[in-house]
Nucleic acid binder design. Structure first.
Lengths: 206, 206
DNA sequence: GACTGGCTATGTCAAGCGTCATAGAATACA
DNA sequence: TGTATTCTATGACGCTTGACATAGCCAGTC
């Protein structure tokens, strides 16, 4: 095995990021939360916090991507989407609307390293890198959705737009539900989105 | 005048929050960014950072709400929505995709005060309050959209769901555009949303 | 001109942060 | 068994943070 400590740290970091954001998640929080040794951080992540954040984004992105792909190809677009939303809803409920999305957190909350010299140049390179990673994840999710739509015969351009819309709605809805401490925004968005998707698929031949 | 210093601080805080998130925005950053005196913070915001954050959320929420209402009632739902999206797009472009939404930041990035006693109880009350404020803002925006849709004859239940969808898409799209450093996600979402809205309005009589 | 009260400037403080160094434990292989 | 390598534990460091205290400025008013 390649040390489960490392994996626990990554998963724990992703979890904390999804709940609190990037900067509200300290490395000490991560080791507390995962019951892992603090000294191991330097060992497993020699590049420090940015590296841990990056791995957490990749990890969470891939986990969702795999699940989305599975459910879409097994159940088709409509039922698959419904199943995916249901799992998101359950996660919101079981965590009392605390859990969000670590990738969204990276896209919204800028990482702030040490302010190096004079506060003039923040750690912009790291932030750009994290944003790139978040973009890769978003693109990956869109791609999964896109392929599912095309698989059911939808034209490429329309499918691309719809895939973007779906990802945007999911991310935005997470924020609304957290603020509302309710799944109602998710329910409303789901209803409308299912309508849109089924109409689009029904007209694919035109 | 009731001291422009206070207002500049609030607007500056909202701006920084929208770019960096809640915890990456320090009070010292705000005074640097707005060229306001550091010592005045305790004077204008005796409750400290939480108070400044709260006022920033209210300020930004109201500003958007007013603009959205104006444009929707002057131009109607479709053209008004288009105009609103256009202004968001311009803002993204002129800030090189740095500016986001301070309300979204509050919903994603948890405020962390001093960890009081033993790290067990974070500043949960303050965070709940900020989330409530964010929820009020989101609700307000949805209400503005809802009224515009009803004004054009849409049935209440459908209008409610669409209003939620629109707000969710706008917030989610901000994140996608920031990560992509591109307005393409906004463009795609806008196209689909205009389609949905015009179809819904066209069928209002059924 | 002196007084006064709202504002500004600057320094100090405890606490938390990420990082690093160093020492100890555990594990794997000969 | 011995030893090398990998992992864990703990403390120290330099820094930033929000909060506070104290002193100075600068209108207005009598």
């Amino acid at each position: 095995m390649t040390s489960t400590t490392r994996d626990k740290m990554i998963a724990g970091a992703a979890d904390l990021m999804s709940r609190r954001g990037v900067n509200a998640t300290s490395m000490r929080d991560v080791v507390r939360h995962t019951a892992t040794p603090r000294g191991s951080i330097g060992h497993h992540f020699p590049d420090g916090k940015p590296q841990l954040l990056a791995e957490a984004v990749r990890f969470a992105g891939q986990r969702v991507s795999v699940r989305l792909d599975k459910v879409l190809s097994e159940l088709g677009v409509i039922a698959g989407f419904r199943a995916f939303v249901t799992s998101r809803r359950r996660r919101l409920e079981t965590t009392q609307f605390e859990a969000g999305c670590p990738v969204l957190a990276v896209a919204v909350d800028h990482y702030v390293g040490e302010t190096s010299d004079k506060g003039e140049t923040r750690d912009e390179a790291t932030q750009q890198h994290l944003l790139d990673l978040a973009h890769d994840v978003f693109t990956d999710w869109q791609q999964v959705m896109l392929l599912a739509l095309k698989r059911e015969g939808l034209e490429a351009a329309r499918a691309t737009r719809l895939a973007t819309l779906v990802v945007a709605v999911i991310e935005g809805t997470v924020a609304l539900c957290r603020a509302a401490r309710s799944t109602q925004p998710l329910n409303h968005a789901q209803q409308e989105l299912e309508l849109i998707l089924s109409e689009a698929l029904a007209r694919k031949a035109e």
